[in-house]
Design a protein around this nucleic acid. Sequence first.
DNA 1: CAATAGATCATCT
DNA 2: GATGATCTATTGC
Length: 190
Amino acid sequence: MPLGAFSISAPELAQGLLSTVLFHGETAGMIVETEAYLGGDDLASHSARGHTPRTSVLFGPPGRAYIYLIYGMHECLNVVAGPDGTPGCVLIRALEPLSGLALMYRRRQITSGPAALNNGPGKLTEALGITRKQYGYRLDSGPLRIRRWRDRPVFNTAVTPRIGISQCIDWPLRFVWARHPCLSRTERRA
DNA sequence: CAATAGATCATCT
DNA sequence: GATGATCTATTGC
């Protein structure tokens, strides 16, 4: 995707990234679950605490990787959204594994099915070998990149509150490919 | 199946 | 010194 395609609001980008493909090295997966984090009064966003060394990339141009360590052990990958100077971003929460499966299994140290390789923000960074070394990398080209599928697949998008936060817990900013088997959590049945 | 505990450390107060 | 956009294993019903 060209860098300009990331210069839309975080919720728009979060929805638009569904069904696009994330590549790193020989591994790749299709994005099936995202969350939008806003600027301003979104207290769940890291940018709500202001411009710090860790969050600096959030305040720069879009289409860059914002990667941070959580709970002392897991890396989380975000895509910077919106025009230069606005701190929105999109957390990548789950992928459907597409290539490099053997390497993903080796990194994740699991024996269960492929749906468990990438169904969580900490799992997919481990499977694809993404760490803070890639902090600030552009995502339109280079070793870490996001590309659109040739023809966007047909699917339904569901919107839910975000997961794992303690502020703004009811905001509808999580976007999922409805009923996809690789989601980090299954939706409540109607 | 649901709830809980523990791991583990960069970041910010 | 407390916290956290998580994951895994384990316990309990």
